[in-house]
Design a protein around this nucleic acid. Structure first.
Length: 494
RNA sequence: GCCCCCAUCGUCUAGUGGACUAGGACGCAGCCCUUUCAAGGCUACGACCGGGGUUCGAAUCCCCGUGGGGGCACCA
């Protein structure tokens, strides 16, 4: 367990949607911050203006809030280490880039995109070991370079990678990762528009914002040595680096593609957090699900956020890629729904019901909720299990009113007998209505499944429903009798 | 092609040299409960990638294969 307050961050770019991997990094970062009494920070990495998607930032914030892991510092909440949007930190990067150039760790590069493209093409046709920058501008005299810069020539700034030896970087999950420097490139750290690339911006910001633990996707592993080199060039302390594993598509064959996402959506699932709510998932279920992709828990894996905060440790993260398993999401969602109090659950279900045009009375909803709770996988399942409680009348399929092994005439007779039994009763509560109906089953020679099946279809309008007598009690005598009469009419017309 | 990472049931994982007959969860199958569907309970099926070492002893450490994944931009 960490003892010093940790500062962690989530640094997404507002270029697309907020997906599972983002959410999982956010969760782990949040957990580390919480358990050490530190801060979790949201920083927007918007240096690539060509890929900027309007509204993406809002989706990120909304998703984090919905999950219940909102940041302590962010562009919206502010904080003492802002600004939290990289485009607003332009001058800071400029200053640090200049420092790198002055120290001889970086140099201006005047190569045009066209030249670079051609260079790569040539390298490929020559089948060179590795396609990379050829170092043309690295050779330039610093004075000459400075003259061209002041002359107004367009340029980028490249990091001067050591050409001999190797770089060892330490990942908390994987241990030391060593790469021969000759395989590393002179990466561009400031673009010709004056904005930094990730490599510079993230290192500068993590330092400036006093980040102690960097949790980021394993996709960064290949440039990890570069990042460490940049930090060493500045002479800064390194944070604890944690690279949680890549998330794979359900088949385990590669990352999720656009096509895979569409397929998941078809199936009532999604890898995008802002879809999950509409699909009926709870933050608790989603959180528990993503927490366990790459976090090894031996037993008792159903956890709330609070329990995760107590139990989480970056020591228990796994290095191997994990396939996304939506069945497990359903499982966790269902179990967390069952853990909710009746009031809480009712409140969460209501929007799905009213959203479907149903008129929902809170009093009734509170009675219905315990009946459907253990049947729900997603919150919108409440529609299939509870709609009939809130409808004036119900329209059963004629064939559903015919009991198994019987014909329409026999079924109609059972329905009529049931009506005769229920009509004189003061009410159709469970304790009042069930005994005489049980007695009828005994006496009639039909089995319970047949009799109650007809009654269920008549009263609920469907073959599958919550327990029959409990349901009738909530629906009430008048409506029950009404629906039963309606069913008799249908059966007699068959 | 080059570089990097990874390797236990179908999937997510526990396991840090002897307590492993390899544990849990999801899923799957069966049974119990039951007026339907669930939930719940019980049971079953199911894995240490291969080969070499190291060691009295290896799922665990090392090497080599093989397989899988990721990355090779003035994107993050």
């Amino acid at each position: 367990m960490n003892t010093k307050p940790a500062r962690t961050r989530l640094a997404p770019s507002p270029t697309g949607r907020f997906h599972l991997a983002n959410a999982r990094n956010a969760l782990y970062s949040y957990l580390v911050a919480r358990q050490t009494g530190g801060q979790f920070i949201l920083r927007i990495e918007d240096t690539d203006q060509s890929r900027f998607v309007p509204g993406a930032e809002e989706v990120i914030v909304r998703s984090l809030e919905w999950l219940g892991i909102a940041p302590d510092e962010s562009p919206y909440r502010g904080g003492s280490h802002g600004p939290y949007r990289q485009t607003e930190r332009r001058d800071i990067y400029q200053q640090y880039a200049r420092e790198l150039v002055e120290k001889g760790h970086a140099y201006p590069c005047f190569c045009t995109p066209e030249r670079l493209q051609q260079m790569r093409k040539e390298q490929e046709t020559r089948k060179v070991e590795r396609v990379r920058y050829d170092g043309l501008c690295r050779q330039l005299e610093p004075g000459e370079a400075a003259r061209r810069v002041t002359a107004g020539e367009k340029y980028t700034i490249r990091f001067k990678m050591p050409q001999d030896g190797s770089t060892t970087a330490h990942d908390h999950i994987r241990g030391d990762i060593t790469v021969e420097n000759q395989y590393l490139d002179d990466y561009v750290i400031v673009k010709s528009d004056g904005l930094p690339t990730y490599h510079l911006a993230a290192m500068v910001d993590d330092h400036e914002m006093k980040i102690t633990h960097v949790l980021r996707s394993a996709e960064w592993l290949p440039t990890f040595p570069l990042h460490v080199q940049i930090i060493r060039a500045f002479g800064w302390d390194e944070p604890v680096w944690v690279h949680p594993s890549i998330l794979l598509k359900p088949s385990g064959k590669g990352k999720m593609s656009k096509r895979d996402s569409a397929a998941a959506m078809q199936d009532g699932h999604s890898i995008f957090v802002d879809d999950l709510k509409g699909l009926g998932y709870t933050p608790e279920g989603v959180l528990n699900w993503i927490a366990l992709m790459g976090w090894g828990v031996a037993e008792d894996d159903v956890m709330t956020l609070g329990q995760m905060t107590e139990r989480f440790s970056i020591d228990n993260l796994t290095p191997s890629p994990a396939a996304i398993n939506f069945q497990k999401l359903d499982h966790f969602n269902g179990t967390h729904i069952r853990l909710l109090t009746t009031e809480d659950l009712a409140g969460r279900i209501k929007p799905y019901l009213t959203g479907a045009g149903l008129e929902v009375q809170n009093e009734t909803l509170l009675k219905v909720t315990p009946l459907i709770r253990e049947r729900l996988v997603t919150l919108d399942d409440s529609l299939t299990f509870a709609s009939f409680f809130f409808k004036e009348s119900v329209e059963p399929e004629p064939q559903d009113l015919v009991a198994k092994g019987l014909d329409a005439r026999q079924s109609a007779a059972i329905a009529r007998n049931s009506l005769e039994i229920l009509s004189p009763l003061p009410d159709v509560s469970h304790s009042v209505a069930e005994p005489p109906m049980r007695e009828y089953v005994e006496r009639s020679g039909f089995n319970a499944g047949q009799v109650f099946g007809i009654l269920r279809a008549a009263v609920t309008g469907q073959k599958v429903s919550p327990p029959l007598f409990e349901s009738m009690e909530i629906i009430g005598r008048e409506k029950v009798l009404q629906r039963l009469k309606h069913a008799i009419n249908i059966l007699e017309g068959m």
